[in-house]
Write a protein that binds this DNA or RNA. Sequence first.
DNA 1: CTTAACCCTATCGATTTAATAGAATTTGTA
DNA 2: TACAAATTCTATTAAATCGATAGGGTTAAG
Lengths: 137, 137
Amino acid sequence: MLSHKAKYALKALLYLAEQDENHISRTIEIADGANIPKKFLEQILLDLKRGRFVSSKQGKFGGYYLIKSKNDITLAEIHRLFDGAIALLPCASLNFYEPCSDCKTESECSLRHGLLLIRDKTLKAMEGITIASLVKK
Amino acid sequence: MLSHKAKYALKALLYLAEQDENHISRTIEIADGANIPKKFLEQILLDLKRGRFVSSKQGKFGGYYLIKSKNDITLAEIHRLFDGAIALLPCASLNFYEPCSDCKTESECSLRHGLLLIRDKTLKAMEGITIASLVKK
DNA sequence: CTTAACCCTATCGATTTAATAGAATTTGTA
DNA sequence: TACAAATTCTATTAAATCGATAGGGTTAAG
Protein backbone atom coordinates (compact mmCIF):
# COMPACT_ATOMS: atom_id res chain seq x y z
CA MET A 1 0.00 0.00 0.00
CA LEU A 2 1.06 3.56 -0.67
CA SER A 3 1.80 5.81 2.30
CA HIS A 4 -0.16 9.03 2.61
CA LYS A 5 3.04 10.82 1.70
CA ALA A 6 3.31 9.03 -1.61
CA LYS A 7 -0.37 9.49 -2.35
CA TYR A 8 -0.18 13.20 -1.54
CA ALA A 9 2.95 13.54 -3.65
CA LEU A 10 1.15 12.05 -6.65
CA LYS A 11 -1.81 14.34 -6.14
CA ALA A 12 0.45 17.35 -5.81
CA LEU A 13 2.31 16.45 -9.01
CA LEU A 14 -1.01 15.93 -10.72
CA TYR A 15 -2.09 19.37 -9.60
CA LEU A 16 1.10 20.93 -10.92
CA ALA A 17 0.78 19.09 -14.21
CA GLU A 18 -2.67 20.53 -14.72
CA GLN A 19 -1.51 24.13 -14.42
CA ASP A 20 -0.59 26.35 -17.34
CA GLU A 21 2.99 26.30 -18.53
CA ASN A 22 5.17 28.68 -16.46
CA HIS A 23 2.59 28.93 -13.71
CA ILE A 24 4.00 28.84 -10.20
CA SER A 25 1.82 27.26 -7.53
CA ARG A 26 1.98 28.22 -3.89
CA THR A 27 1.89 25.42 -1.32
CA ILE A 28 -1.41 26.60 0.10
CA GLU A 29 -2.88 26.58 -3.37
CA ILE A 30 -1.85 22.96 -3.97
CA ALA A 31 -2.96 21.96 -0.48
CA ASP A 32 -6.43 23.38 -1.02
CA GLY A 33 -6.69 22.09 -4.55
CA ALA A 34 -5.68 18.54 -3.70
CA ASN A 35 -7.02 18.42 -0.14
CA ILE A 36 -3.72 17.86 1.63
CA PRO A 37 -2.69 19.21 5.08
CA LYS A 38 -0.53 22.21 4.28
CA LYS A 39 2.34 21.68 6.70
CA PHE A 40 2.55 18.04 5.70
CA LEU A 41 2.59 19.03 2.05
CA GLU A 42 5.52 21.37 2.69
CA GLN A 43 7.70 18.43 3.60
CA ILE A 44 6.50 16.44 0.64
CA LEU A 45 7.25 19.24 -1.80
CA LEU A 46 10.73 19.56 -0.34
CA ASP A 47 11.25 15.85 -0.90
CA LEU A 48 10.02 16.20 -4.47
CA LYS A 49 12.43 19.07 -4.91
CA ARG A 50 15.36 17.03 -3.59
CA GLY A 51 14.28 14.29 -5.97
CA ARG A 52 14.45 16.75 -8.87
CA PHE A 53 10.82 16.41 -9.82
CA VAL A 54 9.94 19.99 -9.00
CA SER A 55 11.79 23.20 -8.35
CA SER A 56 10.81 26.27 -6.41
CA LYS A 57 11.04 30.00 -6.32
CA GLN A 58 11.57 31.45 -2.89
CA GLY A 59 10.29 34.64 -1.37
CA LYS A 60 7.18 36.62 -2.16
CA PHE A 61 5.27 35.33 -5.18
CA GLY A 62 7.29 32.14 -4.93
CA GLY A 63 6.04 28.60 -5.20
CA TYR A 64 6.55 25.27 -6.93
CA TYR A 65 6.62 24.08 -10.51
CA LEU A 66 7.46 20.91 -12.39
CA ILE A 67 10.97 20.59 -13.80
CA LYS A 68 10.47 17.08 -15.14
CA SER A 69 8.07 16.29 -17.95
CA LYS A 70 4.81 14.80 -16.75
CA ASN A 71 5.44 12.05 -19.30
CA ASP A 72 8.64 11.11 -17.52
CA ILE A 73 7.44 11.01 -13.93
CA THR A 74 6.37 7.45 -13.16
CA LEU A 75 4.59 5.87 -10.26
CA ALA A 76 7.64 3.68 -9.76
CA GLU A 77 9.85 6.70 -9.09
CA ILE A 78 7.46 8.24 -6.61
CA HIS A 79 7.01 4.93 -4.84
CA ARG A 80 10.76 4.57 -4.46
CA LEU A 81 11.22 8.14 -3.24
CA PHE A 82 8.60 7.96 -0.50
CA ASP A 83 7.94 4.29 0.20
CA GLY A 84 11.18 2.63 -0.85
CA ALA A 85 11.52 -0.73 -2.53
CA ILE A 86 8.96 -1.99 -4.99
CA ALA A 87 9.96 -5.62 -4.47
CA LEU A 88 8.28 -7.64 -1.73
CA LEU A 89 11.53 -8.42 0.06
CA PRO A 90 14.85 -6.55 0.14
CA CYS A 91 16.64 -9.55 -1.38
CA ALA A 92 14.49 -9.17 -4.51
CA SER A 93 14.98 -5.44 -4.85
CA LEU A 94 17.00 -3.65 -7.49
CA ASN A 95 17.39 -0.30 -5.77
CA PHE A 96 17.12 -1.31 -2.13
CA TYR A 97 18.86 -4.66 -2.15
CA GLU A 98 19.81 -6.27 1.14
CA PRO A 99 20.53 -9.93 1.80
CA CYS A 100 18.03 -11.82 3.95
CA SER A 101 19.09 -12.07 7.56
CA ASP A 102 17.21 -15.30 8.18
CA CYS A 103 18.35 -17.39 5.22
CA LYS A 104 21.19 -19.24 6.82
CA THR A 105 22.58 -21.79 4.39
CA GLU A 106 22.14 -20.50 0.88
CA SER A 107 22.89 -17.04 -0.42
CA GLU A 108 19.57 -16.98 -2.21
CA CYS A 109 16.50 -17.54 -0.10
CA SER A 110 13.77 -19.90 -1.19
CA LEU A 111 11.38 -17.05 -1.88
CA ARG A 112 13.68 -14.88 -3.89
CA HIS A 113 13.14 -16.43 -7.29
CA GLY A 114 9.37 -16.08 -7.14
CA LEU A 115 9.58 -12.57 -5.77
CA LEU A 116 11.84 -11.51 -8.61
CA LEU A 117 9.11 -12.48 -11.06
CA ILE A 118 6.59 -10.39 -9.16
CA ARG A 119 8.91 -7.45 -8.94
CA ASP A 120 9.58 -7.46 -12.66
CA LYS A 121 5.91 -7.41 -13.55
CA THR A 122 4.91 -4.89 -10.91
CA LEU A 123 7.78 -2.63 -11.81
CA LYS A 124 6.91 -2.74 -15.49
CA ALA A 125 3.32 -1.85 -14.65
CA MET A 126 4.35 0.98 -12.35
CA GLU A 127 6.72 2.43 -14.92
CA GLY A 128 3.79 2.55 -17.31
CA ILE A 129 1.79 4.88 -15.10
CA THR A 130 2.96 8.46 -15.55
CA ILE A 131 1.61 11.71 -14.22
CA ALA A 132 0.54 12.50 -17.78
CA SER A 133 -1.41 9.24 -18.02
CA LEU A 134 -3.26 10.16 -14.84
CA VAL A 135 -4.05 13.70 -15.95
CA LYS A 136 -5.74 12.77 -19.18
CA LYS A 137 -8.78 10.91 -17.98
CA MET B 1 7.03 -5.06 1.10
CA LEU B 2 6.07 -8.23 2.89
CA SER B 3 5.90 -8.22 6.69
CA HIS B 4 8.04 -10.70 8.56
CA LYS B 5 4.86 -12.54 9.40
CA ALA B 6 3.99 -13.06 5.75
CA LYS B 7 7.54 -14.04 4.90
CA TYR B 8 7.69 -16.52 7.78
CA ALA B 9 4.31 -17.91 6.77
CA LEU B 10 5.56 -18.58 3.26
CA LYS B 11 8.69 -20.25 4.58
CA ALA B 12 6.69 -22.37 6.97
CA LEU B 13 4.32 -23.46 4.20
CA LEU B 14 7.32 -24.23 2.03
CA TYR B 15 8.75 -26.36 4.79
CA LEU B 16 5.48 -28.25 5.17
CA ALA B 17 5.21 -28.75 1.43
CA GLU B 18 8.63 -30.36 1.37
CA GLN B 19 7.73 -33.03 3.91
CA ASP B 20 6.52 -36.50 3.06
CA GLU B 21 2.79 -37.01 2.64
CA ASN B 22 1.11 -37.58 6.03
CA HIS B 23 4.07 -36.25 7.95
CA ILE B 24 3.21 -34.04 10.88
CA SER B 25 5.67 -31.28 11.71
CA ARG B 26 6.10 -29.88 15.19
CA THR B 27 6.40 -26.11 15.53
CA ILE B 28 9.94 -26.34 16.82
CA GLU B 29 10.89 -28.46 13.84
CA ILE B 30 9.55 -25.86 11.39
CA ALA B 31 11.11 -23.04 13.39
CA ASP B 32 14.53 -24.64 13.28
CA GLY B 33 14.19 -25.72 9.67
CA ALA B 34 13.11 -22.32 8.39
CA ASN B 35 14.96 -20.17 10.92
CA ILE B 36 11.92 -18.54 12.49
CA PRO B 37 11.50 -17.51 16.16
CA LYS B 38 9.43 -20.33 17.65
CA LYS B 39 6.92 -18.34 19.70
CA PHE B 40 6.35 -16.00 16.80
CA LEU B 41 5.83 -18.94 14.48
CA GLU B 42 3.18 -20.32 16.85
CA GLN B 43 0.96 -17.33 16.16
CA ILE B 44 1.58 -17.53 12.45
CA LEU B 45 0.65 -21.20 12.30
CA LEU B 46 -2.55 -20.45 14.17
CA ASP B 47 -3.37 -17.78 11.61
CA LEU B 48 -2.64 -20.23 8.81
CA LYS B 49 -4.93 -22.70 10.53
CA ARG B 50 -7.74 -20.15 10.81
CA GLY B 51 -7.18 -19.42 7.13
CA ARG B 52 -7.64 -23.11 6.33
CA PHE B 53 -4.20 -23.56 4.83
CA VAL B 54 -3.00 -25.98 7.48
CA SER B 55 -4.54 -28.08 10.20
CA SER B 56 -3.10 -29.39 13.42
CA LYS B 57 -3.08 -32.31 15.75
CA GLN B 58 -2.94 -31.41 19.41
CA GLY B 59 -1.20 -33.11 22.29
CA LYS B 60 1.81 -35.36 22.29
CA PHE B 61 3.10 -36.22 18.82
CA GLY B 62 0.95 -33.40 17.50
CA GLY B 63 1.93 -30.75 15.01
CA TYR B 64 0.96 -29.11 11.75
CA TYR B 65 0.29 -30.29 8.22
CA LEU B 66 -1.01 -28.84 4.96
CA ILE B 67 -4.69 -29.28 4.21
CA LYS B 68 -4.60 -27.27 1.00
CA SER B 69 -2.70 -28.42 -2.08
CA LYS B 70 0.62 -26.66 -2.50
CA ASN B 71 -0.53 -25.96 -6.06
CA ASP B 72 -3.49 -23.99 -4.73
CA ILE B 73 -1.78 -21.81 -2.15
CA THR B 74 -0.81 -18.57 -3.83
CA LEU B 75 1.30 -15.65 -2.77
CA ALA B 76 -1.77 -13.46 -3.23
CA GLU B 77 -3.68 -15.36 -0.55
CA ILE B 78 -0.86 -15.23 1.96
CA HIS B 79 -0.36 -11.55 1.30
CA ARG B 80 -4.02 -10.86 1.95
CA LEU B 81 -4.11 -12.95 5.11
CA PHE B 82 -1.12 -11.29 6.77
CA ASP B 83 -0.56 -7.98 5.02
CA GLY B 84 -3.99 -7.13 3.68
CA ALA B 85 -4.74 -5.40 0.41
CA ILE B 86 -2.65 -5.99 -2.68
CA ALA B 87 -3.75 -2.74 -4.30
CA LEU B 88 -1.77 0.43 -3.62
CA LEU B 89 -4.76 2.30 -2.18
CA PRO B 90 -7.94 1.04 -0.51
CA CYS B 91 -10.06 2.62 -3.25
CA ALA B 92 -8.38 0.33 -5.79
CA SER B 93 -8.74 -2.84 -3.75
CA LEU B 94 -11.04 -5.76 -4.45
CA ASN B 95 -11.01 -7.39 -1.03
CA PHE B 96 -10.25 -4.40 1.19
CA TYR B 97 -12.13 -1.64 -0.58
CA GLU B 98 -12.68 1.66 1.18
CA PRO B 99 -13.45 5.01 -0.39
CA CYS B 100 -10.75 7.69 -0.19
CA SER B 101 -11.28 10.13 2.65
CA ASP B 102 -9.47 12.97 0.94
CA CYS B 103 -11.11 12.93 -2.47
CA LYS B 104 -13.73 15.54 -1.94
CA THR B 105 -15.58 16.16 -5.18
CA GLU B 106 -15.64 12.98 -7.24
CA SER B 107 -16.43 9.47 -6.09
CA GLU B 108 -13.40 8.19 -7.95
CA CYS B 109 -10.10 9.76 -7.05
CA SER B 110 -7.68 10.88 -9.72
CA LEU B 111 -5.29 8.05 -8.92
CA ARG B 112 -7.76 5.20 -8.85
CA HIS B 113 -7.79 4.40 -12.55
CA GLY B 114 -4.05 4.01 -12.77
CA LEU B 115 -3.90 2.04 -9.57
CA LEU B 116 -6.49 -0.40 -10.83
CA LEU B 117 -4.20 -1.24 -13.74
CA ILE B 118 -1.33 -1.90 -11.36
CA ARG B 119 -3.46 -3.99 -9.07
CA ASP B 120 -4.68 -6.18 -11.92
CA LYS B 121 -1.17 -6.94 -13.13
CA THR B 122 0.34 -7.42 -9.70
CA LEU B 123 -2.52 -9.63 -8.62
CA LYS B 124 -2.21 -11.79 -11.70
CA ALA B 125 1.50 -12.16 -11.04
CA MET B 126 0.97 -13.00 -7.38
CA GLU B 127 -1.66 -15.58 -8.18
CA GLY B 128 0.87 -17.24 -10.43
CA ILE B 129 3.30 -17.88 -7.59
CA THR B 130 2.26 -20.96 -5.63
CA ILE B 131 3.99 -22.82 -2.84
CA ALA B 132 4.56 -25.62 -5.33
CA SER B 133 6.26 -23.27 -7.76
CA LEU B 134 8.62 -22.18 -4.99
CA VAL B 135 9.43 -25.71 -3.88
CA LYS B 136 10.59 -27.00 -7.20
CA LYS B 137 13.72 -25.00 -7.83
C1' DC C 1 11.51 47.08 6.12
C1' DT C 2 7.48 44.62 5.69
C1' DT C 3 5.18 40.88 3.76
C1' DA C 4 4.67 36.52 1.73
C1' DA C 5 6.46 32.72 0.51
C1' DC C 6 9.70 28.59 0.88
C1' DC C 7 12.97 26.02 4.05
C1' DC C 8 14.34 23.25 8.00
C1' DT C 9 14.25 20.54 12.26
C1' DA C 10 12.11 18.87 16.11
C1' DT C 11 8.42 16.79 18.35
C1' DC C 12 4.15 14.38 19.28
C1' DG C 13 0.59 10.86 19.61
C1' DA C 14 -1.17 6.90 17.73
C1' DT C 15 -0.58 2.78 15.54
C1' DT C 16 1.78 -1.17 14.00
C1' DT C 17 5.26 -4.55 14.17
C1' DA C 18 8.16 -8.18 15.84
C1' DA C 19 8.82 -10.72 19.42
C1' DT C 20 8.37 -12.69 24.14
C1' DA C 21 5.96 -14.51 28.27
C1' DG C 22 3.19 -17.43 30.63
C1' DA C 23 -0.34 -20.19 31.37
C1' DA C 24 -4.36 -23.28 29.75
C1' DT C 25 -5.68 -27.18 27.13
C1' DT C 26 -5.22 -31.44 24.69
C1' DT C 27 -3.42 -36.00 23.83
C1' DG C 28 -0.55 -40.20 23.98
C1' DT C 29 1.45 -43.55 26.91
C1' DA C 30 4.06 -45.70 30.71
C1' DT D 1 -3.73 -41.77 36.62
C1' DA D 2 0.07 -39.01 36.25
C1' DC D 3 3.40 -37.25 33.30
C1' DA D 4 5.24 -35.40 29.15
C1' DA D 5 4.82 -33.14 24.93
C1' DA D 6 2.50 -30.66 22.11
C1' DT D 7 -0.94 -26.94 20.53
C1' DT D 8 -3.79 -22.89 21.93
C1' DC D 9 -4.71 -18.45 23.78
C1' DT D 10 -4.11 -13.83 25.72
C1' DA D 11 -1.34 -10.25 27.31
C1' DT D 12 2.57 -7.49 27.20
C1' DT D 13 6.56 -5.09 25.61
C1' DA D 14 10.04 -2.48 23.07
C1' DA D 15 11.00 -0.38 19.03
C1' DA D 16 9.90 1.57 14.83
C1' DT D 17 6.96 3.97 11.73
C1' DC D 18 3.44 7.15 10.32
C1' DG D 19 0.72 11.14 9.91
C1' DA D 20 0.66 15.40 11.33
C1' DT D 21 1.80 19.74 13.80
C1' DA D 22 4.83 23.46 15.69
C1' DG D 23 7.85 27.05 15.35
C1' DG D 24 10.99 29.22 13.78
C1' DG D 25 14.71 30.63 9.84
C1' DT D 26 15.69 32.28 5.20
C1' DT D 27 14.74 34.48 0.85
C1' DA D 28 12.97 37.83 -2.30
C1' DA D 29 9.59 41.42 -4.05
C1' DG D 30 8.03 45.92 -3.61
